[in-house]
């Protein structure tokens, strides 16, 4: 599914948050959005997902949906957003409950999502019994169960430790990248963006504007290889130089506020 984002202006009361943010995402492409704290990354994702009404702007998708797709545009949240009173299985099944599905179909979708995310043995557990990484796997399983066409990931790894992050990035590659699912991925972690993205949209500090759009241009599987390291370092340096001053002044601005 293709995505066209055209947010001319977005403001809370008098505070301008986003200005002239226009870009497109191709079918099956992974686009990361990076930028300093408070630049409106998450707001932008909310607008794309239809949870925030933009002051002035439009978001459109284009392309045929697979027949099994129940929720074309699906979120994965930073703090997992699991219902703490439901078991893993019931959390994954939650978005299916208001769809007309046979109970066999529903169970098949849940079991399949649990199996793919390695959660089959934890189906009866409550979220409080799981580690952070396992909780985010539940969040991903829940997103996969509705067979999304566009995934909106809002800093999905930032609540996790570095090792867990590595493991989940591997899972991402295996679970949905290259499976024809388009993704818009918000992060403040440049290494994460360089590891996962086809293109990286760099936003300025508030009001968020597009400073640059950087193509990574290395095959995803090759990026963990030692040979790719120098090229990635150059890209990282370029991203950092785009962000550094913004991040520094955003930091001071936050401190004053």
């Amino acid at each position: 599914m293709k995505l066209a984002v055209d947010v001319r202006r977005h403001a809370y009361d008098d505070l301008l948050v986003l200005s002239d943010v226009s870009f497109t995402v191709a079918d099956g492409e992974v686009v990361c959005i990076v930028g300093p704290s408070g630049c409106g990354k998450s707001t932008l994702l909310g607008i794309v997902g239809g949870l925030v009404r933009p002051t002035d702007g439009t978001v459109a998708t284009e392309g045929a949906l697979r027949p099994g797709t129940l929720n074309p545009v699906t979120f994965v949240f930073q703090d997992f957003a699991l219902l703490p009173w439901r078991s893993v299985r019931d959390n994954v099944g939650f978005p299916l409950e208001h769809h007309r599905l046979s109970s066999a179909d529903r169970e098949a979708r849940v079991s399949d999502a649990l199996a793919r995310t390695g959660l089959a043995d934890f189906a009866g557990a409550l979220p409080k019994q799981l580690s952070g990484g396992m909780r985010q796997r539940v969040g991903i399983a829940r997103a996969l169960a509705v067979e999304p066409a566009l995934l909106l990931l809002d800093e999905p790894l930032s609540a996790l430790d570095a090792q867990t992050r590595e493991l989940l990035m591997d899972d991402f590659g295996r679970l949905w990248m290259g499976a024809g699912i388009t993704a818009l991925y918000v992060t403040h972690n440049l290494d994460e963006a360089l590891r996962l993205a086809d293109r990286i949209v760099v936003l300025s500090r508030r009001p968020g504007r597009i400073k640059d759009i950087v193509s990574v241009g290395i095959d995803r599987p090759d990026r963990t290889a030692v040979a790719a390291a120098p090229r990635l370092a150059v890209l990282r340096e370029r991203l950092w130089s785009l962000i550094r001053d913004e991040a520094a002044s955003a930091d001071r601005e936050m401190a004053r506020a």
Binding site: G46, G49, G50, L51, N71, V73, T74, F75, F77, D79, A81, L83, F94, P95, E97, H98, V146
Partner: peptide, 12 residues
């Protein structure tokens, strides 16, 4: 977040 999550799945 839980409310947003439910809305993002189109729950009535």
């Amino acid at each position: 977040t839980l409310i947003r999550m439910a809305q993002s799945f189109g729950i009535p």
